[in-house]
Amino acid sequence: MKLGLVIDLDTCVGCHACAVACKQWNTSGTTGPLSDYQPYGEEPSGVWFNRIRHYEVGDYPTNKTINAPMSCMHCDDAACVTVCPTGASYKREEDGIVLVDQSKCMGCNLCSWACPYGARELDEEAGVMKKCTLCVDRIYDENLPEEERKPACVLTCPSHARFFGDFDDPQSEVSSLVRERGGYAMMPELGYQPVNKYLPPRQRPKAPTVAAKQSEDSGGLIAKWLKRQKDAFNQLGEG
C-alpha cells in the first residue's frame, strides 16, 4: 500500500480549513499537542502540519490565483528518514507513511533541513520534530464509520479539493485522478519521489470580451466558418 493525498489546485479556494482541521485533530492525537507560542500575544505562532500558500501564476490577462496547501509528501525516497541519526524518523513498510517516534527524537533539526517541502516543524515546547501523520490515528480507527476513516484535512475540505487513497491500487480514486487530470509531483528534480500529487488547473475557454466579439463578427461566412473550425481544433487538446 502507498497511502497519500491528491490535491486539486483547480478547486482549492485557499480557505485554510484543512490546516485548521489538521491542527484540531492532531493537537489531541498521538503526536499532540501541536504547541502554540504566545497564542494570544503580539506574534502568535506554533506548530502546523499543513500550510497553505497563495500564488499568482501567469501574467495579466492570463493570470490565475493558485492556492497550494502543502503537508508531508510521504516521499518514496524520504531524505528526512535517511539523514535521521537516531532512528526516530521512519517510513512504514505497510503503507508508506513517514512518522517520527517522539520518544527517540533528539531535536537536531537535520530532517527538517533535508526536507524540501517544509513539512517538518520543531515543537520548541516538546523539543522534538513533528510532522503530518496522514492521520494514522484516524484512518485505521474501526470505531469510526468507514466513510470517516480519512485524514481530517480531506474530510473537512469544503471544495472537495483533497483526496486520500492508495496509489499502489490503479483503480483507486487517487490513481485515476492522477491519470485523468495529469497529476504531478512538486519539485521532482530532487529525486525524493513524493507520493502526494497535485492536479493542475483545468483549461477553460477564455471569457468573452467586447474586442473578441467584434473580431468574431467581422468577415464573411467562409472566414467565420474557418475560424470556428480553428477554435474547435485548438480546444481539442484541452481537458
Binding site: H16, S45, V47, R53, Y55, V57, T62, S112, P116, M187
Partner: peptide, 21 residues
C-alpha cells in the same frame, strides 16, 4: 517547486501572519 514551468509564478500571500519555524 510548484509545477508551473511555463508561466511566471509570484507569491501573493505566505499564509501566516508571524514567523514560523
Amino acid at each position: 517547486a510548484l509545477g508551473f514551468t511555463r508561466a511566471t509564478v509570484r507569491i501573493l500571500d505566505v499564509g501566516h501572519s508571524s514567523d514560523t519555524f
